[in-house]
Design a protein around this nucleic acid. Sequence first.
DNA 1: CGATTAACTTGACATCGTCAAGATAGAACC
DNA 2: GGTTCTATCTTGACGATGTCAAGTTAATCG
Lengths: 209, 209
Amino acid sequence: MQAIKSKSSYHHGDLRATLLVAARQLLTENGIEGLSLRKLADQVGVSRTAPYHHFKDKNALLSAIAEEGFLHWQHIANDIFATSTLPLHEKLRLFVRSYLRYAVDNPQLYDLMFGRTLWQQGEATDSLKQIAYPCFQHQVALTRQWQQQGLINTQQDTLRLSQVIWGTMHGIARLLIDGIYADASHLDEMSDCAVAVFLQHSPESGTTS
Amino acid sequence: MQAIKSKSSYHHGDLRATLLVAARQLLTENGIEGLSLRKLADQVGVSRTAPYHHFKDKNALLSAIAEEGFLHWQHIANDIFATSTLPLHEKLRLFVRSYLRYAVDNPQLYDLMFGRTLWQQGEATDSLKQIAYPCFQHQVALTRQWQQQGLINTQQDTLRLSQVIWGTMHGIARLLIDGIYADASHLDEMSDCAVAVFLQHSPESGTTS
DNA sequence: CGATTAACTTGACATCGTCAAGATAGAACC
DNA sequence: GGTTCTATCTTGACGATGTCAAGTTAATCG
């Protein structure tokens, strides 16, 4: 059941990074609850308490994984808006699609990043908060942009509207992930339908994509 | 640490119901993970394995609690549409508000009813499915009604639109419950903003409540 | 080269879900 | 009424888990 250590035997040298890689795999395989520190340590070939020298507790490990997730998603999101060839409403459409696809492609990671485990009960790490909060705020900034561009409703309060839009994406993502009356095979249709609702107000849209 | 049994000593007589009551309380206090069968048994004043004669396992117990939740919510929802004095779009508004309020007032229960614990990983009971599925379908029926009443977009596919609308409510509920960039004190504003987006298309609405 | 210290180890404990085997008492049947 | 049946409840046990305490190892720093 044990795996190889990369170095001699006692001091691993690069345990923290190795743990993170293995942990991400165990997460995608077994889910948040199924990811146990003992299995993780065993997989990496190290004693069960070794991880505690790199992560305060399970929560800290999960937070660290989530951090990577946020950075990754941030990168994807930035790429979308950096691509300037697309018309504005197409960028919005692509953004929503990408969000949902990211969630569906990495269900357990998404669960970790935006689920109750870290934010409700588990106390997210300060380090995680510093990465995640800007990500949350980015959502508000985007909404303001869309309003200024006249894509979406301009009469509603920006913060409320951003909560509604993000809520929509988040909710659909959750329904898809948990398999509640929604199927990932219809991801694009659901995504476009959501965007159509957002764009409804504006003159140059309204119909299905 | 132990509590009283209602009957003589050995046979409880009404353990299943008693367990459900205590379990619901433990759930609201400690959350899904914090609800342990052992603590539950102890609280009721019964041995740790006694609950297993009434519930196959923890999942079955959780499913049973969720069932009650669905029945309760169904009752609330029906009441809204049975009240015929309100105009249609006001009923829609009230419905969304009530949904979010129900979620915020019973966060742990909501988590159980619509979270991954039962639907993704934990295999919901057949009994639960029989109660929950109609509840899910009701959401589609409502959407169809709103479309027929001309409240919301009629061009979009009903199923997709219902997934988007429910997704929106679900997502906002989750953001509120998990405390992710949303605060329950703004529940009504967020709710009305969401409804405003839904109604956007129709001529007789558009502005904030 | 010796001492400090970070990294890693084993041992132990409490908590948890759950199975197996035995004890109890209400119900059913003669 | 007495006997048997069976649902209900009990104690005992096992393995998994998160985490603390105390010891070991080896890299680093003076």
